[in-house]
Amino acid sequence: MFKYFIILIFILCLIPAHALCATEANNTIKGVEDKETIESENGKWTGIDVSIVGKYAEKYGHPPRKPYINTDQGDLLLFVFTFFGLIGGIIIGYNFRKLFVEGKDKRN
């Protein structure tokens, strides 16, 4: 299991971020403004970890820095969230079935 996990991490680390983005900055169409299609309005639905933790960290003179692996590029973050959500869902479903469907206790 550990080996599978390490190989999975390695493969994910090697995925080039630009290969997973839908658009590139220099690849614009003439006369069409390059603009984000989805925008959050004035920070609505911002995670409180970001808004509160970030705010206080800056107040105390330790602003957040960029993480060591950047997955927050275009659709890459969406990809990793979906990917790990899917993996998590499969693990939950598999073990749920094993424990509570196949291994259901018989009371009689």
Binding site: I6, F10, A17, D49, V53, K66, P67, Y68
Partner: peptide, 30 residues
């Protein structure tokens, strides 16, 4: 295992990095 871990480490440090996260974010703690 050690070779695999080394490969992961190399790939991590060679990847460019930006973005902000949740929980207590990178760089906040001295």
């Amino acid at each position: 295992k050690s070779t695999l871990i080394l490969l992961i480490f190399i790939s991590i440090i060679t990847i460019p990095n930006f973005a902000f996260g949740m929980h207590i974010t990178e760089g906040i703690l001295p």
